[in-house]
């Protein structure tokens, strides 16, 4: 006997993000297998799973860096319509620059390591068309401040900063344009525990103050538990279970999720 969950009845808002039957293969490997998910405005979705589960591949597709073999992806925004996977390169780049922010585990992927920190954030604004120097400087330092970056280090290049500070620069760059969607790929992996707590706290504040919709991928269940409202568990490219975060951690249904939750220290 199992209970099936109904479609939303009380929530009136439409989902911001809707992905349907997204699949991707690399040669003989099926990295992502028919994944469907909806994320509502202001919601934080956590995706967990071991290495090779397809979670990061799926996130890169949401960032329009990769194109799937099949499937559709829509965002409920006035300026875009239809399947985002069908957009041309220019339209993708514009949409990512203006409405989707991303923070990678590896700061080299998201930052120019030798440019100044404020320059890294301003670059994002330039791509979106801002040309006034004073506005660039002000918006960049606002975003860095919201990410709790020390303002006396504005001109320091990320290469000279600690791991935690580099993640703050990435975060500032991601939120500089107040994106509708913030994607986080293992944002605290590799950081010291104390620094990790500070970055998590910054993310939690941003979520509460700005109500940004987030999708966060991590193999660290503690990170997901702290941030996510809802959790999707992936294994070998497939979604094995999805539910409210407390339910996934307290009453996991699938054998794999039970194993994952019980393996946590």
């Amino acid at each position: 006997m199992t209970i099936t969950i109904d479609a939303p009845k009380l929530i009136k808002a439409a989902p911001l993000l809707r992905a349907q039957n997204v699949s991707k293969t690399y040669g003989a490997v099926q990295a992502v297998r028919s994944v469907s998910v909806e994320v509502f405005p202001g919601e934080v979705l956590g995706i967990v799973g071991e290495s090779g589960s397809g979670k990061s591949t799926f996130l890169r597709m949401l960032n329009l860096e990769e194109t799937p073999d099949s499937g559709s992806y829509t965002l409920d925004l006035p300026e875009v319509e239809g399947n985002l996977f069908d957009l041309d390169r220019f339209a993708r780049r514009m949409l990512c620059a203006t409405r989707i922010g991303i923070v990678y585990q590896n700061p080299h992927l998201g930052l120019l390591m030798k440019h100044s920190s404020s320059g890294n954030v301003a670059e994002r604004l330039l791509v979106a068309g801002e040309r006034r120097f004073a506005v660039l400087r002000e918006k960049a330092s606002d975003a860095l401040e919201a990410s709790e970056f020390p303002l006396d280090r504005l001109d320091a290049p990320p290469a000279e900063l600690s791991g935690g500070m580099q993640q703050r620069v990435q975060l500032a760059k991601a939120i500089a344009l107040e994106p509708a969607l913030l994607l986080l790929d293992e944002p605290t992996t590799g950081l010291d525990v104390s620094v990790q707590a500070l970055v998590l706290d910054t993310l939690k504040r941003l979520q509460q103050d700005r109500k940004i919709t987030m999708v966060i991928v991590s193999h660290d269940l503690g990170v997901i538990r702290t941030l996510a409202d809802r959790v999707m568990v992936m294994r070998r490219g497939e979604v094995v279970e999805a539910g409210l975060a407390d339910q996934i951690f307290q009453d996991p249904q699938h054998a794999y999720t039970q194993q994952l939750v019980h393996a946590k220290l």
């Binding site: 969950i5 109904d6 009845k9 009380l10 919601e43 409202d229 809802r230």
Partner: peptide, 9 residues
Amino acid sequence: RAADVDITL
């Protein structure tokens, strides 16, 4: 059976 988002609300 309520959707997760409805429970959150």
